[in-house]
């Protein structure tokens, strides 16, 4: 690398600063805006009040969809993590015939835009009677989360030493015991990261949910999206601020446990 040891800012440094600012500022600007005392969506905001946080309670659709999204993301994360971890174990440990093909099949939802996945799922679910149901929505969220879990756990297994498992079985542990006491603790960071990532994938999703939700099963991003198309008020800012702070907690957990750069290792169609 070209190690430039200069104290004064370089052109590259200045451009980098502005690009980072560009990526971060849309989120940073929302939080002060939410404390405005007027009804105008204005920056810099005028005055200071908590009225837009209080007003969230006047709109039950946001409270309901928030709880609904949390539950949906939690159920999605748990199921996707179990399914994905089992698949990654099967591929890495047993290396079945056609492992390469099965792996690309499991990754295939990442290669098709999620909007198209949503349309296809809506058509098919209408045919089999799952359209607009909670199960339909849940299945579609599991679908888009499983590939990430498989990839994370598979990568986590790549440094795993299978002689440990053999040693355990020689010492008389059955295969379940071996998995629980030996394999799982070692791949736990990868499994946990997969679960958090699956949670966020579900919690943030709009493009698949768009075709899956019904009035009784609306997710928070969908509620914000619909509201934003009709009116732009500081109410969106207060709701968004809560989501941003909540997401930051998860992001820091991910960064500490796994490292964000490893998560984005290859193609990702998160939106």
């Amino acid at each position: 690398m070209i190690h430039v040891k200069k104290r004064r800012p370089t052109v590259l440094g200045i451009i980098t600063f502005f690009v980072v600012l560009m990526v971060v500022s849309p989120l940073l600007i929302i939080i002060p805006t939410s404390f405005t005392s007027t009804g105008a969506l204005r920056f810099p905001p005028e005055g200071f009040s908590l009225q837009w946080y209080v007003k969230i309670f006047d709109r039950p659709e946001f409270i309901d969809s928030f709880w609904f999204s949390l539950q949906l993301a939690l159920v999605t994360a748990v199921i996707a993590t179990i399914i994905g971890t089992l698949a990654a174990l099967a591929l890495h440990k047993y290396k079945p015939r056609g492992a390469g093909m099965i792996n690309s099949l499991l990754m295939s939802p990442l290669t098709v835009p999620s909007l198209i996945i949503g349309i296809a799922a809506l058509l098919f679910f209408t045919r089999i009677g799952l359209a607009g149901t909670f199960i339909g929505l849940l299945l579609s969220h599991i679908l888009i989360s499983v590939p990430y879990v498989v990839r994370l756990v598979y990568t986590g297994l790549s440094t795993f030493d299978y002689t440990l498992e053999r040693a355990a079985s020689i010492l008389g542990a059955n295969s379940f015991r071996t998995f629980w006491d030996i394999t799982f603790p070692i791949i736990r960071p990868a499994v946990f990261s997969g679960m958090v990532f699956a949670f966020l994938t579900s919690f943030d999703n709009v493009t698949v949910s768009l075709f899956m939700v019904s009035p009784s099963t609306t997710t928070l991003p969908m509620a914000i999206f619909s509201y934003m198309q009709e009116s732009l008020t500081p109410l969106v800012a207060s709701i968004s601020s809560i989501v941003i702070l909540l997401s930051l907690v998860f992001i820091f957990i991910l960064e500490r446990v796994y490292g964000l750069d490893r998560l984005f290792g290859s193609n990702s169609h998160a939106h």
Partner: peptide, 16 residues
């Protein structure tokens, strides 16, 4: 810094 905003919904970033 450039990765973390991508874990927050695009709807919220667009609102920003």
């Amino acid at each position: 810094l450039i990765l973390s905003p991508h874990l927050i919904s695009v709807v919220i970033r667009n609102f920003g």
